[in-house]
Design a protein around this nucleic acid. Structure first.
Lengths: 234, 234
DNA sequence: TGTTAACAGTTTACACCGTTAACTAAATTT
DNA sequence: AAATTTAGTTAACGGTGTAAACTGTTAACA
């Protein structure tokens, strides 16, 4: 045999992806509840039951979609990292703008990642955690780079980690074998939680009635935050 | 007749509330998707169709639940406002702690408010916006009070509203007839979006693996934020 | 190369869902 | 006491995910 990829395997992979694509399309149009096996099947001109050859259940399909979303966000961040120009601060800003841009371009996916519709349910951590880390690592790495650059001058209160958290962060770093400084991780978390709030409120249209242009609001607040961290803005 | 409350009206109100209670229970157990009219009906030992005497549709039921959640949060904040002791800053802190406490105590309701889990569905703004404002007004009012107290000394970059947003905020205030200063509204939005991010990440357990004690993290970050605003912490 | 086993797909059926329509029984109003 | 409003019923329709039994097709092996 020429190799592992038999004709059938190729075809299988194709329809596997086609099912996910159709499902994703339905989801983008109407949310997770709008994903219907019969609808997908009709769109692909096959019977609904056939999907069970590819996914154990509807939940399994949606789990796969969630996983794809995790990775798509990770890809977007990594790609932004690679194409970003300028000094470390400028590149950090570019990546953080990409983060929001991806969220508003893929609101359903973003929601899937950061808000599970079903209590108790958690997408398999052994798969999602690495995906989340992929994106996180880009940002933390850039922060670390910023901290070592000439564009950083320590500035209270972000020059040091709050004593109540130091130990925990250091433990986390050692446990997972990261190669970042605790301060970079701390600033990463602080930045993440702040920007996350803005994006979430924007996605649900809670922000626009007050601030108007939410993209601008995001940019402004991000810049304020980074300079509060001690970075000199370009 | 003795008055407006006929025996039937009382009974109607009772089952009306009972339906919502059952729905809320189902939702807490399995998410919004798990709210089934037949399930509720079975739990109440009546037929599913009977629910249509009380709610126009399943969506209407869920809208009622959302509205209840909005009002419950508003109640909690108003009550915290009334019972809070100390100077303006201390009372503001107390209310903001209540905000998070309510969110973690009622995660489902908080999600209903800030994370629309239902595809296509948007809660009617003419009902939700006033409910949002009720809670918001408490916080903005307290900020305003802080700004006029001896515990405030303007501090860059939060001493002024970013030029790009000034006009919009002032328009909003005039349009809705609020009696707050633009700066108080601005700081309110900034604070809201920052704290919202922390709470959201906490609700989905994204924060705890990194920071450990998320309640403490919230408190620390809130204090940092308020002193960045120019408030002197007690 | 012909046989066998795995596999993609079908049809059918089941239990559940929201919703509507026609109807009954009880409470209120007149 | 009669008329009317209303809370409830049952039955049905079209939709859903899913399991089982079955039918061809494809790949692997003697």
């Amino acid at each position: 045999m020429d190799s592992s990829k038999t004709r059938r395997d190729v075809r299988r992979e194709e329809t596997y992806q086609a099912i996910k694509a159709a499902a994703h399309q339905q989801m983008a149009a109407g949310g997770t509840a709008a994903v219907s096996l019969r609808g997908i099947a009709a769109h692909m001109r096959m019977s609904a039951a056939a999907i069970y050859r590819y996914f154990e259940s509807r939940d399994a399909l949606i789990t796969a979609l969630i996983l794809d979303s995790f990775n798509a966000l990770g890809d977007a961040l990594e790609q932004a990292h690679h194409t970003a120009q300028g000094n470390a601060v400028q590149r950090l800003i570019a990546v953080l703008e990409t983060y929001r841009a991806w969220a508003v371009a893929h609101p359903i996916d973003f929601q899937l990642i950061y808000g599970n519709p079903i209590p108790d349910y958690h997408a398999p951590p052994e798969l999602t955690v690495p995906a989340v880390i992929r994106g996180f690592v880009v940002i933390i790495g850039l922060i670390e780079e910023c901290l070592h650059s000439t564009h950083y001058t320590p500035r209270a209160p972000y020059a040091e980690i709050p004593p109540s958290m130091r130990e925990r962060l250091e433990a986390r770093i050692q446990q997972d074998g990261y190669t970042v400084s605790p301060l970079a991780l701390y600033l990463g978390v602080v930045g993440w939680s702040q920007l996350h709030g803005i994006i979430m409120l924007e996605l649900f249209n809670h922000l626009q009635p007050i601030v108007g242009d939410s993209a601008q609001y995001y940019t402004v607040q991000m810049h304020l935050m980074l300079s509060a961290f001690g970075l000199t803005m370009p």
